[in-house]
Simulated assay, not measured.
Amino acid sequence: MSTPPFRATAPAPTPLPPYTGDDATCAKCAFPEARTRYRKAGSYRDDEMTLFGPSPRPERLERECLRCDYVWDEALNPPDAPEPIGRELTITELADALSASHQGWALDLSPELAAHMAVGLLRTLDVRTRPDATGGAS
């Protein structure tokens, strides 16, 4: 009977405390103001050494006291965000919608320009269909 190889496992992550809102109070010095930074899963804080792969921390909001620089993590806000209504538009659907909304003007959008505009918009915006919309993208 052989023994399975030893494998080090990371401890299970503890649940993050809920987001305390804009009026966070530092647990160390009771100062009522804190900076907030979004941190993606696996990322380290700026003051931590990056060792042996990604951090075990989940996606989170990092809070930092503006007086004493104490740092703590909180859950994302809101933790139970509702699913967005509709679905994301594709580049082609958004380009078609841009062209359709521009028809009748002195200069119509070329398909190439509409596609270029759609790519730029989708890089910065979450564009979704509306359930009450008629025609156009669905």
Rank of each mutant, 00 (worst) to 15 (best):
E93K: 01
P54T: 12
C29N: 05
A75G: 08
V127R: 01
P54L: 08
L113A: 14
A100N: 00
R123Y: 09
G136I: 04
T90A: 02
R67H: 02
I91R: 02
R87D: 03
H102I: 05
I85A: 10
A41C: 06
L113I: 15
Y19W: 15
T9W: 07
E62H: 03
R123W: 06
D132Y: 13
D132N: 09
W105Q: 15
S43V: 02
R57F: 08
L109G: 00
W105Y: 15
S2D: 01
R35K: 14
E48M: 00
R63N: 06
G104K: 05
P79Q: 05
T3R: 09
R60K: 08
P82L: 08
A41L: 07
C29I: 09
Q103H: 13
T92K: 09
L89S: 01
T3S: 00
L125R: 04
L113R: 14
A10Y: 10
E62N: 10
W105M: 15
T14P: 10
P79K: 02
D46Y: 12
L109E: 03
E59A: 12
L66A: 05
L66V: 09
T25W: 13
E112C: 06
R87L: 07
G120E: 15
G21V: 09
P4S: 09
S110V: 01
V127A: 03
L98M: 08
P56R: 09
V127K: 01
F6N: 14
V71G: 02
P15V: 05
R37P: 06
T90C: 03
E112L: 11
F6H: 13
D132E: 15
T129E: 01
M49K: 14
R130A: 03
P32S: 06
P111H: 05
D23K: 14
R128S: 11
E59N: 06
L16A: 09
T20H: 13
R128C: 09
H116E: 14
Q103F: 14
A118C: 07
S138R: 15
F6W: 04
D132M: 11
V127C: 05
G53S: 04
S55E: 02
Y38P: 03
L16C: 07
L121G: 04
R57Q: 07
P17F: 01
A81H: 03
D69C: 06
R60G: 04
P78A: 00
R60H: 11
L121T: 07
D80M: 00
S2I: 08
M1D: 13
T3E: 04
T134C: 15
P4I: 04
S138T: 12
E93R: 01
C65D: 01
K40G: 08
A75C: 00
I85F: 06
